[in-house]
Simulated assay, not measured.
Amino acid sequence: MLTTYTVTGMTCAHCVNAVTTELEQLDGVSAVEVDLESGAVTVTSDRALDVESVRAAVDEAGYALAG
């Protein structure tokens, strides 16, 4: 399952790494792809993810989930 979220506040490769690392720790996530320029974060998972879990992971990385 592919789901795309928008993450605000990312400005560099360190940002991308922090968000990727936190999201990859969520149960069921197999891949994370980040487009730094647009803030689009595409998560591949084996099932639908709880948006609050995604929000908490992004927050833990130091950024915000838009919306």
Rank of each mutant, 00 (worst) to 15 (best):
E24A: 07
D46H: 10
V54T: 12
T8L: 06
A61V: 02
H14W: 04
T4G: 05
Q25G: 06
L2G: 07
V54H: 12
D59S: 15
V7K: 03
T44M: 07
E52A: 15
G9L: 05
V51T: 14
D50A: 15
V54R: 10
V58N: 06
A40D: 11
C12T: 07
A61T: 01
C12Y: 02
A57E: 07
V29P: 06
G67P: 05
M10E: 12
E33M: 06
T21Q: 10
T6H: 14
T21M: 00
E22D: 10
Y63P: 04
T21N: 10
A66F: 03
V43H: 12
L36H: 11
G67V: 01
A56E: 15
Y5T: 09
V58T: 03
M1V: 11
L23C: 08
A66V: 05
L26W: 01
M10V: 08
A40Q: 13
Y63H: 06
N17P: 00
L49N: 14
E52K: 13
L26P: 06
V34K: 10
T42A: 10
G39T: 02
E60Q: 11
R47W: 02
L49S: 14
V19A: 03
T8P: 01
M10W: 08
H14A: 15
M10P: 03
A48D: 15
V32E: 14
R55I: 07
M1E: 11
V43M: 13
A57K: 02
S30Y: 00
T3V: 13
T42D: 12
E52S: 14
Y5E: 06
R47Y: 04
T20D: 08
M10G: 11
H14I: 04
Y5R: 08
V43Q: 13
A18H: 02
V19R: 01
S30K: 12
C15S: 13
G28D: 07
V29L: 05
E22L: 01
D46V: 06
T42F: 09
E52Q: 15
R55S: 04
V32M: 11
V34D: 14
Q25A: 10
A18F: 00
T21D: 05
A61L: 01
T42N: 07
V7M: 05
H14R: 14
E60Y: 00
A48Y: 13
A64G: 13
E24D: 09
C15V: 06
G67R: 04
A57M: 07
E60C: 02
D46I: 05
E33S: 13
E22G: 02
T3C: 09
Q25M: 04
A48P: 15
A13E: 12
A61W: 02
R55V: 04
A13P: 01
T11E: 14
D46Y: 02
T8A: 08
G39M: 03
V29W: 03
A48N: 15
D46F: 01
E22H: 01
T6P: 09
T44I: 04
D50K: 11
H14T: 13
A31S: 14
L49K: 15
V41L: 03
V54G: 14
V41N: 08
A40V: 02
A66C: 07
S38K: 05
H14F: 08
V41G: 10
A40T: 07
V51Q: 11
A56F: 06
V54C: 07
V29K: 09
L65K: 12
